[in-house]
Design a protein around this nucleic acid. Structure first.
Length: 561
RNA sequence: UGGGACGUCGCCAAGUUGGUAAGGCACAGGGUUUUGAUCCCUGCAUUCCCAGGUUCGAGUCCUGGCGUCCCAGCCA
């Protein structure tokens, strides 16, 4: 186990199992996404947990697509999911699909029927609902519950042959219609769906249900620790019931269709999912945001999906740091958005090279420099990390500074430029403001300053950034903010959509950046000094047409006042 | 008394067989600083959902309450 791996109840449990020689001392986990949407930050927690546990105990972790419902699943999603996992920094030991085991599921179902543990039910969906009872009252037995094994086998075979229409019949487990756990009231095992499957085409007119397929998939892959989220706690008795009835290890014929099954008796353990405030995490809602075009797609930088966070400029390290930081427990939790922001700031502060950019340019003329004057300044790319090298900063008589760095009537404590005041221009030196130019409306249109000789320069409190008017490049900069304007968009009255933050994306078309920023390749991250961390947009940034996304602002104890 | 789970600082979260409340984030002060950034110090739960009980001693054990979340798809 790696030394810095945070300890938590699942790690402790696995550790005890290994020490006790359970599962032959093996650790095999899996990350089992359904390919019906993009992965989000919540999945990252599960990915870090499953791959992390395997790695730390010398085990393996599979990526398994839980593709048992072709009505909702698409190949495009399976590709995106693989890309996101790789980007996050993980590699699966083998790639699986639940659909690889369709024949095993089928053989297992026949055994259940032969053993009198499953039956074909002719009730329709609505009738099943009526027979199921309620949370506080028991259900009633289906009229088809006592069919003979022979009849069930015949009917199930014909279901598999495609003889019946969609929804006409189901195969159900025969457990207990009076169970206080609704999952045990004769749950469906197979339903009829004549839909083409992205992996198996039209080979199957029937598809297995999650509870049934998942535990068998785990067992047949040799999974030792099946980790999932809290909402499956109630399903664990069913998970165990199927595996106990089937006893796959004593019945190798059931998995004979597989070349090298490593049959285990897995155990499910549940943990709480990751929730972040100011966003939504349910796949249904994320799909809705995309389909209703409330965002610009799955990778819109405001989305909590991994591909969006990548585009926004988050690093894989920062996301893994968040997962470490929030821990693994069974407590329902909502993490402050600020924790995520803190993680990227910490990571990017360490590694992002510094550049200068001006978002709202105010022209400044340095009057005691000649027309055509040019200076080259060699500056460090990172104040604390000289190994990140240097670059040359060029400027002449005219530069741009940030409009907010000048105030005619400064508030108390203002450390930047004021009329007749002094300020340091980062890397250039100290200047004195000698003139303020305005238009008819009184708006400041430019400043005139003079540069002190280093030996004559007075002490100043403030340093401001700038970009050379002659050498800088125009850039588009997008300032992103949280997608929703309330901490919990799901609570309270109305739809979560009513709480979308109208100011979640501000596009600045006429920002200025120094050449050494504009020239970076897409996905290069910089700190624009005194502003924040930015990334060259993965899709739209190109040399000569720079486009930057703000990952996160710098902490600003001045703005906070 | 439908079933399942969870309740330790504003948000997370450690708390081994009962021995006298880790840490992170946030926040508040102070220092360094050619980024009002970073970094560095300091402070931040006499108290563990509540009430009883056992004990020399309880967040940890017992009893009884209270609160929150999940479950009635032929979704996962």
């Amino acid at each position: 186990m790696s030394a810095d791996a945070p300890s938590h109840f699942i790690r402790n449990l696995v550790s005890r199992d290994v020490a006790a020689g359970k599962h032959g001392g093996l650790v095999v986990t899996r990350f089992p996404p359904e390919p019906n949407g993009y992965l989000h930050i919540g999945h990252a927690k599960s990915i870090c947990l499953n791959f992390g546990i395997a790695k730390d105990f010398g085990g393996v972790c599979h990526l398994r697509f839980d593709d048992t419902n072709p009505a909702k699943e698409e190949l495009a999603y399976v590709r995106a999911i693989q890309e996101d996992i790789h980007w996050l920094g993980f590699e699966w030991d083998s790639l699986r699909h639940a659909s690889d085991y369709f024949e095993v599921f089928y053989q297992c179902a026949r055994k259940l029927i032969e053993d009198g543990k499953a039956y074909v039910c002719d009730l329709n969906a609505e009738q099943v609902r009526e027979y199921r009872g309620t949370l506080t009252s028991p259900g009633r037995a289906s009229p088809w519950r006592e069919r003979s094994s022979e009849e069930n086998l015949d009917l199930f075979t014909r279901m598999r042959e495609g003889e019946f229409d969609d929804g006409r019949r189901t195969l159900r487990a025969k457990i207990d219609m009076a169970s206080p756990n609704i999952n045990l009231r004769d749950p469906a095992i197979y339903r009829i769906r004549k839909i083409s499957h992205q992996n198996t085409g039209n080979a199957w007119p029937i598809y297995p249900m999650y509870d049934y397929a998942h535990c068998i998939s785990d067992a047949v892959e040799g999974i030792t620790h099946s980790l999932c989220t809290l909402e499956f706690e109630d399903h664990r008795p069913l998970y165990d019931w199927y595996l106990d009835q089937l006893n796959l290890r004593s019945h190798p014929e059931l998995s004979a269709s597989l070349t090298d099954p490593q049959v285990s008796r897995p155990e499910q353990t549940e943990f709480s999912r990751l929730n972040l405030d100011y966003t939504v995490m349910s796949k249904r809602k994320l799909v809705e945001l995309v389909q209703k075009e409330l965002v610009e797609g799955w990778d819109d930088p405001r989305m909590p999906t991994l591909s969006a966070m990548r585009r926004r400029g988050f690093t894989p390290e920062s996301i893994r740091m968040l997962c470490d930081r929030v821990g693994v427990t069974k407590q329902v939790n909502v993490i402050d958005f600020g924790v995520l922001e803190g993680c990227v700031r910490e990571d990017l502060d360490k590694r992002a090279q510094r550049r200068m950019a001006v978002l709202d340019p105010l022209p400044v003329t340095i009057e005691n420099l000649d027309e055509g004057y040019t200076a080259d300044i060699e500056v460090s790319n990172h104040p604390q990390q000289p190994e990140l090298g240097t670059r040359t900063l060029r400027h002449g008589r005219k530069i741009y500074i940030e409009r907010t760095d000048f105030e005619e009537v400064p508030p108390k404590g203002f450390k930047r430029l004021i009329p007749e005041g002094n300020v340091r221009l980062r890397h250039i030196g100290i200047v004195h403001c000698v003139g303020v130019d305005k238009d008819d409306t009184g708006r400041v249109t430019g400043l005139r300053v003079t540069l002190y000789k280093p030996e004559d320069a007075p002490k100043v409190k403030g340093t401001i950034h700038w970009v050379s008017a002659e050498h800088g490049q125009r850039a588009q900069v997008r300032l992103y903010d949280r997608l929703f304007s309330v901490a919990n968009p799901d609570s309270g009255e109305g739809s979560y959509i009513d709480h979308l933050n109208p100011n979640s994306c501000q596009v600045i078309d006429a920002a200025w950046v120094e050449p050494a920023a504009a020239d970076g390749v897409a996905e290069t991250r910089f700190q624009f000094e005194r502003i924040g961390y930015f990334v060259a947009d993965r899709r739209e940034h190109e040399p000569g047409k720079p486009v930057f996304n703000r990952v996160v602002s710098l902490r600003d104890s001045w703005a906070k006042r």
